[in-house]
C-alpha cells in the first residue's frame, strides 16, 4: 500500500507528534502544528495517535491510493474529494485502489491532516518521521513531499464512518484569542507597552510558518532604559543569549511579535514578552495570513486549567472514536 503524490499542494509534509528530547542540541520537536487534529485523524482510521500523516497548509495535495484503504481528513476546513465527489471532513471513509484524493479551496483554518490506515511508513529519524526541512530530517529524504513521490503506508484496519462531533472541532474565533503568560523579561518593557500589547489588535503576517508565527498591526514596544549588559546586542530588544521556549514571543526591534512554533530555533538574543500557553499552540497552526488576533493575559493557574480543559477535549474525542 502506498500514496502516490500527483500534486504536492503548496507545502505538504509528513508529520507525527515530533521528536522530543533534542531541543538542547538545537533540534526542535517538530511534528504537527495542530497536534490535536493529527491525533484525531489517526484515531478515525484506527491508527495509534502518533502515527505519521500528511500536513498540508493552505492548499491540499492530489494523491492516488494504490490499494483499498481508509482515509480521514481533519484540521482546517477544505472540501475533500474522492474521484471528484465530496466526502465529509473529520470522518473516516473508504477509498478504493486507484481512487484520487483531491481538495477544494480552504474555507476555514489553515492546515489539514490526512491520515491513512496503517500510517505513513517512511524511515523514522531520531524517533520520528516528522519533516524538519531546515535540518533535512524525516519526511521524504528530509524534505516536503513532491509530485511523483510514492509514500509507503503500513498495515492498518479501521471502520469507515467514524466521526468527531462538530462541538469537539476547534476553530479560531475572529479575532482569534491567544492566551499569554508573561515571562522572565516582562520588566524590560514599559507599563504602557505591557498594556498596549494586550489592548491592541494584531494580524497574522504572511511570513508566518512552521518555525514562527509573526504578527503585525499593534503599537511598537517601548523598552525601559538601561545600559545593555555585556554580551547583549545594542538594540533594546536584545538580551544576553537565552533559551527560547516553544510558544515564546520574541519582538525583534520591538515591532513585530513572533511566536516560536514546532520548528522553533532553540535560543538566541531577543527578549521575550512571555509565552503563548500550550493549550493555544494548536490554534496558532490554524491561523491564516491577515486574520485578526488578540493576545490575552493569563496567569499560571489559568494556563494549567486551560491545559486540563484541552486534555478533557482529547478524552472526549477518544471516547467518540473508540
Amino acid at each position: 500500500m502506498a500514496l502516490e503524490i500527483r500534486k504536492p499542494g503548496l507545502l505538504t509534509t509528513i508529520q507525527d507528534l515530533g521528536r522530543p528530547g533534542y531541543f538542547h542540541l538545537g533540534i526542535p520537536i517538530g511534528g504537527a502544528m495542530d497536534r490535536l487534529s493529527l491525533r484525531a485523524a489517526n484515531r478515525l482510521v484506527g491508527n495509534p495517535e502518533d502515527a505519521a500523516c500528511l500536513e498540508a497548509v493552505f492548499m491540499g495535495p492530489e494523491l492516488v491510493v494504490t490499494e483499498d484503504t481508509l482515509l480521514a481528513v481533519t484540521g482546517g476546513e477544505m472540501p475533500v474529494k474522492l474521484d471528484g465527489a465530496e466526502v465529509p471532513t473529520w470522518t473516516s471513509f473508504a477509498a478504493k485502489k486507484g481512487q484520487v484524493l483531491s481538495f477544494g479551496y480552504l474555507t476555514d483554518g489553515a492546515r489539514i491532516y490526512i491520515a491513512v490506515a496503517g500510517g505513513i511508513a517512511t524511515e523514522p529519524m531520531l524517533g520520528s518521521r516528522a519533516t524538519y526541512a531546515i535540518g533535512a530530517l524525516g519526511g521524504v529524504d528530509g524534505r516536503a513531499v513532491a509530485a511523483g513521490d510514492v509514500l509507503p503506508v503500513g498495515d492498518g484496519a479501521g471502520t469507515p464512518g467514524r466521526t468527531v462531533p462538530e462541538a469537539l472541532r476547534r476553530r479560531p474565533g475572529r479575532p482569534a484569542e491567544l492566551r499569554v503568560l508573561p515571562g522572565l523579561y516582562w520588566h524590560r518593557i514599559t507599563e504602557a507597552s505591557q498594556k498596549a500589547f494586550f489592548d491592541d489588535e494584531w494580524s497574522v503576517a504572511p511570513e508566518a510558518d512552521r518555525m514562527g508565527y509573526r504578527f503585525r498591526g499593534g503599537r511598537p514596544l517601548e523598552f525601559v532604559e538601561r545600559e545593555q549588559p555585556f554580551g547583549a546586542g545594542s538594540d533594546p530588544s536584545n538580551i544576553v543569549d537565552g533559551c527560547y521556549p516553544y510558544g515564546s514571543i520574541q519582538v525583534p526591534g520591538g515591532t513585530e511579535p513572533i511566536v516560536l512554533h514546532r520548528d522553533a530555533v532553540s535560543g538566541g538574543g531577543y527578549f521575550m514578552i512571555g509565552a503563548v500557553i500550550s493549550a493555544d499552540m494548536d490554534l496558532i497552526g490554524q491561523l491564516q495570513p491577515n486574520v485578526p488576533v488578540r493576545f490575552q493575559r493569563v496567569d499560571m493557574d489559568a494556563a494549567l486549567k486551560a491545559r486540563a480543559e484541552r486534555t478533557a477535549v482529547l478524552d472526549e474525542i477518544r471516547a467518540a472514536t473508540a
Binding site: Y105, L106, P206, P289, N290
Partner: peptide, 9 residues
C-alpha cells in the same frame, strides 16, 4: 480567476 491560497496579491 480564483485565488488558490491566502496571502498578499
Amino acid at each position: 480567476i480564483q485565488c488558490p491560497l491566502p496571502g498578499i496579491f
